[in-house]
Amino acid sequence: MPPLPRPAPPITAATLHRGLADARFELAAIGYFDPQWSLLALRHVAGHADGVHLPIRRIARDALLFGAAAVMLAHNHPDGDPRPSMADLRYTRRLATGLDTLGIRLAEHWIVTPTSVTSFRDEGLL
């Protein structure tokens, strides 16, 4: 897989985080990017109080349709706990593996709360 330029511009994080921190239910944002970090598409998926369903197949399909080189994911934890759950960790690994087989990088996964943001990449989880 060809390397993407580093780092992604700060606007990327701001764009994905917008509206997540204060939501009272789980909400996810998926950003699809070209190799120069131009945003190709942004999708939001609403969940419920303690979860959001993000089909890996749909994310992969969208990435292919948009011609994305990278995907970034952000979701909130309405309870304010910024730590990834075991389900978050398992899902992120499965998504990264699935996208990698298609030549697409899962560049980041953030957990957003009203007071903090946890980066899977910074924590060594991605």
Rank of each mutant, 00 (worst) to 15 (best):
T115F: 07
A8P: 15
A29S: 10
T118P: 05
P78L: 03
I59F: 01
W37R: 12
P82D: 04
A68V: 01
D100W: 03
P7S: 09
T92W: 01
I111A: 12
R93W: 06
A21M: 04
S85C: 04
V45K: 07
P55G: 02
P9E: 05
A74V: 03
P5Y: 04
N76G: 03
L106K: 07
L54K: 10
L125E: 11
F25R: 15
A96V: 02
R18I: 06
P84A: 03
A49Q: 08
R24V: 04
V112Y: 00
E108G: 12
M1F: 09
H77T: 10
R24M: 06
G51E: 00
D50I: 03
S116K: 06
D22F: 15
D50N: 08
A14T: 09
A14R: 14
L54Y: 06
A69Q: 14
G47Y: 00
R105C: 11
A46F: 00
G80R: 05
A69I: 13
R58C: 01
A107M: 03
L54R: 10
A107W: 02
A23Y: 01
G47V: 01
A63T: 15
R93K: 08
D88E: 04
R61T: 12
A23L: 02
A49E: 02
P7A: 13
V52H: 00
A69E: 12
G80Y: 03
P5H: 11
I11A: 14
T15W: 11
A29L: 01
G98F: 00
A69D: 14
R58Q: 03
D79E: 13
R121Y: 14
L20Q: 13
G47Q: 01
L16T: 00
R57K: 14
G80I: 03
D34P: 11
P3A: 03
Q36I: 13
H109G: 05
M1P: 13
M72Q: 11
H17Y: 08
P3K: 00
A46R: 13
D122M: 08
A41V: 07
A60D: 07
A107F: 01
D34F: 04
A8D: 11
L4S: 08
R57V: 13
H17N: 09
P9W: 05
